[in-house]
Simulated scan of single mutants.
Amino acid sequence: MIEFKIDPVSEKLDQELWNKINGKTKPLGSLGMLEEIAFNIGKIQNSLTPKIDNPNVVVFAGDHGIADDGVSFYPKSVSYQMLYNYMQGGAAINVFSNQHGIDFKVVDAGIDHDFDPSLSIINKKIAHGTKNYRFGPAMTKEQCLEAIQRGTEVVSDIHKEGCNFITFGEKGIGNTSSGALILSLLADIPLEECVGRGTGLDKDGVKSKFDLLNEALSIYDGSNNPIDVLSQFGGFEVVMIAGAMLKAAELKMTLFIDGFIITSALLAASKINPKVLDYCIFAHKSNEQAHIKMLNYLKAKPILDIGMRLGEATGAMVCYPLVKSAVQFINEMASFQEAGVSESEETKTIS
């Protein structure tokens, strides 16, 4: 098992950070959640002047054997077709990452397709998709551990480029099924409450999806150990993201968390090392019905709730300007003292 040496986030600057935030030329708490974001990033970086350096968004892609059973509105082939779309700059995540000038990378964790090496796709392929877990494990334990390792390699390389803020995205038809099973087992929530519409299933489609996943769950004889759960029901992209998250936390990077699938990877990562959660900022609540259960289990407070459920890190990218604003105000907004503005008595007391 790979070990991750994640340091606890320091609390030594907590009071100074709040004093700085409260001392800005504004009524106490008037910037709302931006103040919490600024505090959390300052705490992660152990700095009174937090900054976002060379932010990256990385989409990990993998195919799922369960997709052959019709758990998704789309066929499995859409996964590899979307990677070509990424390379052509035509996907939503391309639009939003370009909008903010954020470096965008794609990782082939296990797509059932061979890409031309000339394409700018990071090749970390474990296999051509997972096996159908209705009939046995999605992957071997060895493959699971290898996927975790390859996730750490991706993040290590990005960190060497000077990145201290990373967003994870995913692509893999059928991966909401993996997310539902991971949530059910690792958070001890009935499966029926974890299964949602995914790419757009109707009521009958959701019922059929639940029946298939319940059948898969009925043959599982493993434990609630995260490696066992990931090996049985994970996707190569989900496992690789979990490894990438743990490495990012080990490197003291800020993890900007997207929707349902990304949070399921984080849930698994947190069972390997719970300190990973201290390094996370949660972007949004997905419209996938079980995401709120996952967020509540992790005691996470998302910034936005605007009905998104596309994945690909699109929710995080739409939310990114708010995070940027939080960092800007703590660094650039004048204090009462600097501006020569009288403080309220309440501010004086707190400071």
Rank of each mutant, 00 (worst) to 15 (best):
Ser325Leu: 13
Glu338Thr: 06
Asn287Ile: 09
Arg309Thr: 04
Leu246Asp: 00
Glu345Leu: 14
Tyr320Trp: 15
Phe282Cys: 07
Met253Asn: 03
Val238Asn: 12
Val229Phe: 01
Met308Pro: 05
Glu346Thr: 13
Ile262Ser: 07
Tyr297His: 15
Met317Ile: 05
Ile292Gln: 14
Ser335Tyr: 12
Ile330Ala: 13
Tyr297Trp: 14
Ile292Thr: 08
Gly235Asn: 04
Glu338His: 08
Thr254Asp: 09
Lys293Trp: 08
Ala268Val: 06
Ala244Gly: 14
Asn224Met: 11
Phe336Lys: 07
Leu298Ser: 01
Met308Gln: 10
His284Met: 06
Leu230Tyr: 00
Phe256Val: 03
Pro226Tyr: 06
Glu288Leu: 06
Ile330Cys: 14
Gly222Asn: 02
Thr263Asn: 12
Ile272Ser: 01
Gln337Trp: 10
His284Gln: 07
Thr263Asp: 04
Glu345His: 09
Ser325Ile: 07
Glu346Val: 15
Ser342Lys: 12
Ile257Val: 15
Glu237Gly: 07
Gly340Lys: 05
Tyr320Ala: 01
Asn224Pro: 00
Glu346Asn: 11
Phe329His: 12
Gln328Arg: 13
Thr263Ser: 14
Asp228Ala: 02
Ala334Asp: 14
Glu345Gly: 09
Ala326Asp: 03
Gly311Pro: 04
Ile227Pro: 00
Leu310Gln: 05
Leu255Val: 10
Ala313Gln: 03
Asn273Arg: 05
Ile303Val: 15
Leu230His: 00
Glu312His: 01
Glu332Gly: 10
Lys324Asn: 12
Gly307His: 10
Leu310Thr: 07
Lys271Asn: 14
Leu277Gly: 03
Tyr320Lys: 02
Leu295Gln: 06
Ala300Leu: 08
Lys252Cys: 10
Ile292Ala: 12
Asn331Pro: 11
Ser286Ile: 08
Thr314Trp: 08
Pro302Asp: 12
Ile292Asn: 10
Val276Gln: 02
Leu266Ala: 07
Glu312Leu: 01
Ala244Trp: 04
Gly307Trp: 12
Lys252Met: 09
His284Tyr: 05
Glu343Val: 11
Pro274Leu: 11
Asp278Gly: 14
Thr349Met: 14
Ile261Arg: 03
Phe233Cys: 05
Glu343Ala: 14
Ser231Cys: 06
Ala290Glu: 08
Gly222Val: 00
Arg309Asp: 03
Asp221Phe: 12
Val229Gly: 00
Ala290Gln: 08
Lys275Pro: 08
Ser344Ile: 12
Lys285Tyr: 13
Val318Tyr: 06
Ala248Glu: 01
Thr314Pro: 06
Glu332Pro: 08
Ser335Lys: 10
Asp258Thr: 03
Val276Arg: 00
